[in-house]
Design a protein around this nucleic acid. Sequence first.
RNA 1: GCGCGGAUAGCUCAGUUGGUAGAGCACCUGGUUUACACCCAGGUUGUCGGGGGUUCGAGCCCCUCUCCGCGCACCA
Length: 761
Amino acid sequence: MDPEYIKWVQHVFVDLFNKGLIYRGKRMVNWCPKTLTAISDEEVIPTPQKSKLYYMRYAVAGEPGRFVEIATTRPETLMGDTAVAVNPNDKRYADLVGKTAVRPFPETEIPIIADEHIDPEFGTGVLKVTPAHDKADYEIGLRANLEIIDVLHPDGRINCPECPDLDGLDRFEARDKATEKLESMGLLDKVDDYENTVGFSERGHVPIEPRLSMQWFLKYPSVKEATDAVAHNNIVMRPERWRKTYLHWMENIQDWCISRQLWWGHRVPVWYQKEKAGALKNAESLDSSHAADLHVSTEPPTDPENWVQDDDVLDTWFSSWLWPFATMETVDQHLDPENNPDATSRCFYPTSDLVTGPDIIFFWVARMIMAGFEYKKELPFKNVFFTALIRDIQGRKMSKSLGNSPDPLDLIAKYGADGLRFGLMRIAPLGTDVRFDEKQIEEGRNFANKLWNAARYRQMVGDNQELTANSQLLTASLSIYDLDILAKLDDLATNLETAYTNYRFNDVGQLLYEFFWSNYCDWYLEAVKNNFKPDADPKRKTATLTVMDTVLSRFLQHLHPFMPHITEELWEKMGYGNGNDFLMLTPAVGDSAVPAIADRCPNPDQARQQVEAIYQSARVLRNLKAEYNVAANKNIRFIIPSTETAPWSEQELSTLALLTGAKEIATDPSFQADKGTPSALTPIGQLFMPLEGLIDVEAEKSRLNNELAKVEKEFSKAQAKLNNPNFVERAKPEAVTKARADLASWTEKREQLNAMITSLH
RNA sequence: GCGCGGAUAGCUCAGUUGGUAGAGCACCUGGUUUACACCCAGGUUGUCGGGGGUUCGAGCCCCUCUCCGCGCACCA
C-alpha cells in the first residue's frame, strides 16, 4: 500500500486497458457465497465430496404418461432450468429433440435440445440445462440461445419468489426441500450415493457457486515470451520438473478475473460518467473502445462530482506480479529516467534468483515473468528455486485452519533463531516435501551450543591475540594435525562452493556440521590438547592457537548465512573483526582469503595420510578397549613390539595415547606377549594391550577369529570381483585399480590376522 | 482420465555420471580426563515397497504392480 506502489498498480491497469487487454464483461466466474466476491480459477480448491445423485422425471409435453429421466446433483437449481439436453447421437432420445419437457416448478415448458457436450454414458444420458448456475450449462445455453434464469442470491440463498416454499432458503436446505417436493409430486425415482469433486473457495471454505457476473478480466500480456523463456532455459527452474508444470499452464492459459468485491485492496482506477454509470456498469462488455465514456487513469477526474468510481478492488496478485520492478523504481522513474536520475541507482532488475514455494508457481512466478517482460522488456530473474514445502509430521500441509503450524516465535524461544534456521536448512532438500520434526530443530540448537563451547575453549587455552591468520600461519611450525585440519578447511570451501552452485543447501548444512563437529571438535581439538599442558612447547602452543583462530574465523564466515546471530556475536567476542568490522560486512571467504594450506605446504597429502593413520589407529584401539570393558581405564598401556615405528615419533604416539585414553603407547622390541594378550592390527602396526590377570587365550582367539571372518568375507568379495574377467575388461580403469588395492589390503590384513591367531597356539 | 513426485535402519531423511548401503534422533554399554550431558567413547539396527528385465555388477537404468502425496482436466 506504499503510494508509489499503488501508482504502479494503477499505471499497469491503465496501460493494459489501453492496450485492449483488460476488459469488463459478464462472464461465468467462480463466486464465493461466503466472502461475496469473485475469485480466480487458482483460488478454487477441488475437493472430493460424498454427495447424492438424484434421479427425477420431467414429463414430455403433449405425450401424457411419457417422461424423461434426468440425473442431477443439484435439484435446488431446477427452477433455473431452461432446457433439457441429450447427445445428438443418442438414439434412445432422438425423437424427443425438438419437443418440450415440463419443468415441475415453477411449472413451465422448456425445450428438449441436442448438444455434443452430453455424455450418453453418464446417469440417464439426459442433462437439465441451468445456464445461470453451471459453466458447461452456460456454454450450452449460449449455443442454443437459451434464456438465463438466476435463482440464487449472491450469498447462496434461493431467489425464486414464484416458489415461496423455497425462496430465501440456503442452497443446501433448498436441496432437501426441492427433493421433498419432487417426491411428493411423484417425480423422484431414486437417490444414489455419489462421490464427486466440488470446488471450494480457498478463503471461504464453502463450495463456490458458478455465477454469471460482471467482472474485470485480463488477457495476459507477453505470454509467448514468458513461455519461451522457460522452454528455452533462459529461466531455469529447480527442481527442473516444475518446468513442465509451468509450460502446461502457460499453454492452456485462461483470461484472469482480476476484480474482487472486497473492502481491502487496490481499487480499480476506472470512473464512470455519472449519468451513464448505471448503463455502463451493466453493459454486456466494456473495453478501451468505450474510453470516451470512461475515465481510466492513475489520476482521479478533475471534476469528481461528475464521475463515479468503480467499487471493485483488484486481486491481490495483481499487485504482487509487479514486484520485481515495482519495488525498485517508481513509475515516474520508469517513464522518464532522465529527469529521475535515481532510477538506475536503485534498480536491481533483473535479479539472479527467485526463491519461492511451488504452490504459487501460477499465482506469482508465471505472472511475474509476464509482467516483467511486458514492462522491462527483459526477464525478471534467471533462476527459480522452489523450496520444499514443510508438512506436519502426519504429512499434511501446514495451514491456519488445521492449526498444525508451529509458531516460529515459540520455536525461537526454545531453540534460538539460529537453531531454527540451521535446523530447517539442513532438512531443505532439493525437490521434495519434508515432514517437520522438532528433533531436527533441536539439532540446530545443539550445533549452536557446540560452536559456542568450542569458541569458549579457544579463549580458555590462550590469550586473545590479534588475528593475522595468514602471515602467522606462514611462520608457524605446523604439526601434521594442523596441516590436516587446514587442508580439510580448504576442502570445505571447495565443497561448499559446489553445493551452493548446485543449489544444494541441505548439503551446505551437512558439510558445515560435519566439518565442525567431527573434523574440528572430535578429532583436531582432541589431538592437540597436549599442546596446552603446562610443560608443552610454547612455540607449538602458539602455532595451535593460530590454527584454531584460522579455522574458527573462516568457519564463522562460512556458517554466517546459516547462523547469522551467533556467528556475528562470536566474530566480535573473539576479536576476529579487529574490533571494527561486522562479519556481515566482511567479504565471503572465497572472495578474500587465499587457501589456508596451499602456501604453507604445497603437498599436504603426506601429513593427511599420517593423520588418518593415527585417527584410524585410535578408532581400532578404542574399540579394543571397549571389547575388553576397559574403555574407562586410563592406565592401559599399548605396546608396539618393534623398533620400526618411523615415521611415528614420540609425539605422535603420545597423541595417539591421548586420543585413546591410554597411559602410553610404548615401543618395546624386547616385549614378549603372553599368549592371549589382546592385540589389534592398526595402520601403524600390531599393538598389544597387556592386561594384568585378565588374559584369556580362548576369548582372544575367538575375538580375533571374529575379526578374521569379517576380513575373509571382504577378501573373497574383492577376489571374486577381480576373478571375473568381465569386470576387469569392462569396468572403468579406476574401479579396477581400486579393486586391486582393496584386494591387496585385505590380503595383508588376512595374513597378519592369521599370524596373530597362530601365535596364540 | 492425463501428468509429476515419493516408498532406504524403530523415526525424520541423505545417497550427484551403475562399482563394498550413510547421517541425526531413538535404543544398549561405558564415561563429569578443567569447551560442551544441548556432551564424549563404543555398539546394535536394513529381503533399499512387490515382481520382472538390462548388465560382469542395480538403491540408482527399463517394464509392471501396490500404496501415499501433488498438479491439471472432468465431474449432470
